[in-house]
């Protein structure tokens, strides 16, 4: 079998609806799951530092469990397992302006819960990277501990979080493909289905790969814009990160301090 150029070109520039739908699903699953996962990560990171030991224990246990098991297994347990056991069955959710199929909900929940554990570690490192003198200064002004956290520590920690967060989102775009195991029609499963009808495996997955790399590349530009804006807010003059570094790695983001090279 030879490489079918016209098939490849046609698929790349005039993809069927299932392909486009899969790519769109990959993007919105990633965005929503990353947003939720970041929120979960922040809460877990704060709980790990809580004065209440049950919160510390829960957060520590959660992170241990989630990071210790494969995402693939988590997806099957959450969607198929919980339904098989009669624990919970994801049904269609009607939001008024749109309805969300159960499988999409399960996909988002799986990715968000999983991502939360990793984001918790990133948040914890970022919070720890803020000098202790910052909290002392805030508390010496009569601010409560949570006020110091909210107004002084977290804004500084967030700047440190952005580069690894960008990394996480890059990973998230690709890791959505795991949800094909529960039958969610994201980009990978759409490609697989198309493949089983045409058997043009190489061409089809090459197109899928090109779609993935387009998404991650566009994201890397968005991330660089966010980093510049944040740096500018701090009154920092940032020279642009060279495109080569941004795409091929080795780039250190223009944020202060300790997180550099931490991952």
């Amino acid at each position: 079998m030879h490489f079918d150029w016209s098939f490849f070109q046609h698929l790349l520039f005039h993809p069927p609806g299932s392909f486009v739908g899969g790519a769109v699903r990959t993007i919105y699953l990633s965005v929503i799951a990353q947003a939720l996962g970041t929120g979960i990560g922040l809460v877990l990171a704060l709980w790990r530092r809580s004065r209440q030991w049950p919160l510390r224990l829960f957060a520590g246990g959660y992170i241990w469990l989630v990071r210790g098991t494969p995402l693939l297994v988590q997806a099957v347990i959450i969607y198929d397992g919980s339904s098989a056991l009669g624990l919970y069955s994801f049904g269609t959710l009607n939001l008024g302006f749109m309805s969300v199929p159960g499988i999409i909900q399960a996909g988002i929940v799986t990715l968000a819960l999983n991502e939360g554990a990793y984001m918790a570690e990133i948040m914890r490192a970022a919070i720890d990277s803020v000098d202790k003198g910052q909290t002392e200064a805030a508390e010496s002004l009569g601010m409560r501990h949570w006020q110091a956290m909210r107004h002084v520590v977290l804004p500084q920690a967030m700047r440190v979080v952005i580069p690894p967060l960008g990394n996480e989102f890059n990973n998230m775009l690709k890791v959505t493909s795991v949800l094909s195991v529960i039958g969610l029609q994201e980009l990978f499963l759409a490609a697989e289905d198309y493949n089983s009808a045409t058997f043009r495996t190489f061409e089809i997955f090459l197109v899928a790969a090109i779609y993935y790399i387009a998404m991650t590349t566009i994201w890397s530009f968005i991330q660089s814009a966010i980093e510049r804006r944040l740096a500018a807010q701090g009154g920092e003059v940032v020279s642009g990160i060279p495109l080569r570094q941004r795409l091929f790695g080795g780039g250190l983001a223009a944020v202060p301090g300790e997180m550099r090279g931490a991952r």
């Binding site: 003198g133 910052q134 002392e136 200064a137 805030a138 010496s140 500084q156 700047r159 807010q233 202060p256």
Partner: peptide, 9 residues
């Protein structure tokens, strides 16, 4: 404080 501890953001 000796080292100011101003809020850099």
């Amino acid at each position: 404080f000796q080292h100011f501890n101003l809020f850099p953001h």
